[in-house]
Design a protein around this nucleic acid. Structure first.
Length: 421
RNA sequence: GGAGAGGUGCCAGAGUGGUUGAAUGGGCCGGUCUCGAAAACCGGAGUGGGGGCAACCCCACCGUGGGUUCGAAUCCCACCCUCUCCGCCA
């Protein structure tokens, strides 16, 4: 949600920032509506003040058992005017809300401009893609050959874009989740949360999925939504609260199932378990002061990278250009892991700084030393999508005979299993 | 799912349709006292919005949204949420 006051004072900058997102200028519409709204508001408030004043006089007279009919006649003309003005006021406020809620966050100054993913900029690489002396296979081929990954069964149960994992492979996914959570909580200071995965629409509004992107979500017959990411419950945890500045940053993590309808992804990644309706993800969320937010963004990204380094999976980090960023983000780093079977890097984690965009929507403030309340900054990122990490492990650790070696970092979680075959 | 109780400020907890933005207690901030602290006493303090260079003025807010009224925390309706009991259930 945008700050209307800021737009009033920075209309040109606002439109310029929208332009970087490929959007037409909106400050004209917004400020015109704002002026009209404030005019109505002023008139309404004047009438309310008059009514309050006269009503007080009526109260005084009545208590003294005197006749108040003269004053009551004076106030009569407001009887229609005030409700009418109130209605207008509400309408304009609602229009403004719709107008602002539909606009995405403004990109940070150092985000590269560009229309789509082709303009993203690679920042760094870690690790060297292994060269196999045999043709590398894709994860789904490996998994099915081992009899540990069953897409047919999944489609009988649930249709397309689901998978059944079995035996050692199911355990490997569990091991990955445990490993990631342990590193983030024990080494990086994140507090583990086990949140609901069904939420109300207010929560989705707070993080920006609603009102615009409901099509991407699953909704239950009870009106609940299945979360597309644990960012939703984790971030909304601080919604409608005032935090003490000293308690920031707050770092939260959760391992949850995530659900996405993939409505706009028809035909994309239909094979394998790259793009599923349901997947596990370890999410990281930080709630910070504005001062801390940029540094925290870098830190969070490193926290996610650490996992790939421990797993010895080659990756690269890119910064998304203005045209490729999500709705709520002002800056986003994607971490892409190397997939030998596909012969390319593939997104495995996305770390976004949302500034105070979400905080304004869900009213998350902090109290400063001067005792004024300001909106917090929220940052969120996956501390890795577990399913895609599983894919990366399979493809990077595959052997000539089609078996897969368990990465060292996961051994403690795998019991006696050292190889999947 | 059935029955009941309730949602008021940082917390607890009053509140008769009319100077109630809201008693009281705790906590918090400032001060007096003290070498310092505690205790005691005095004082201060909500959030958002509109206007003004400013002192300051005005409006709204007692779960949410409507309604009745000159006037609503208080009365009416709907919804949401919480708690207790019963039923069902992993």
């Amino acid at each position: 949600m945008h700050d209307l006051k800021w737009i009033r004072d920075n209309a040109v900058a606002f439109d310029a920032a929208l332009a970087r997102r490929g959007l037409p200028p909106r400050s004209g519409d917004i400020l015109a509506l704002d002026a009209t709204h404030r005019g109505v508001q002023t008139r309404l408030q004047e009438m309310q003040a008059e009514r309050n004043d006269l009503s007080k006089q009526i109260g005084l007279l009545k208590r003294q058992n005197q006749d108040a009919s003269t004053i009551m006649a004076q106030v009569a003309h407001l009887k229609e005017a005030i409700p009418a003005a109130e209605g207008l006021d509400r309408d304009y406020a609602e229009q403004m809300e719709l107008l602002l809620a539909a606009l995405p966050n403004l990109p940070a100054a150092d985000v590269p401009d560009g229309p789509d993913e082709s303009a993203n900029v690679e920042l760094r690489r870690w690790g060297t893609p292994a060269s196999f002396d045999f043709p590398a296979l894709e994860h789904d081929v490996l998994g099915e050959r081992m009899g540990l990954m069953d897409f047919e069964a999944a489609s009988r149960l649930s249709g397309a874009r689901f998978v059944v994992l079995k035996g050692a492979l199911a355990r490997l996914e569990r091991a990955l989740g445990q490993f990631m959570l342990d590193v983030q909580t024990e080494e990086h200071g994140y507090t583990e949360i086990n949140p609901p995965t069904l939420v109300k629409d207010t929560a989705l509004f707070g993080t920006g999925q609603l009102p615009k992107f409901g099509d991407d979500l699953f909704k239950t017959s009870t009106g609940h939504w299945l979360i597309p990411t644990a960012e939703v419950p984790l971030t909304n945890l601080v919604g409608d609260t005032i935090l003490e500045e000293a308690s920031l940053p707050r770092r939260l993590t959760a391992l949850t199932a995530c659900y996405r309808s993939e409505a706009g992804a028809a035909g994309k990644d239909t094979r394998g378990m790259i793009r599923q309706h349901q997947f596990l993800k370890v999410e990281l969320v930080s709630i910070t002061t504005p001062d801390q937010s940029e540094e925290e963004h870098e830190r969070m990204t490193r926290c996610a990278e650490t996992l790939l380094q421990r797993l010895e999976l080659p990756y690269r980090v890119i910064v998304l250009c203005t045209g490729d960023m999500g709705f709520s983000a002002r800056k986003t780093y994607d971490i892409e892991v190397w997939l030998p079977g596909q012969g390319r890097y593939r997104e495995i984690s996305s770390c976004s700084n949302c500034g105070d965009f979400q905080a304004r929507r869900m009213k998350a403030r902090f109290r400063t030393a001067e005792k004024t309340n300001r909106f917090v900054h929220t940052l969120n990122g996956s501390g890795l999508a577990v399913g895609r990490t599983l894919v990366a492990v399979l493809e990077n650790y595959q052997q000539a005979d089609g078996s897969v070696v368990v990465p060292k970092a996961l051994r403690p979680y795998m019991g006696k299993i050292e190889t999947l075959c």
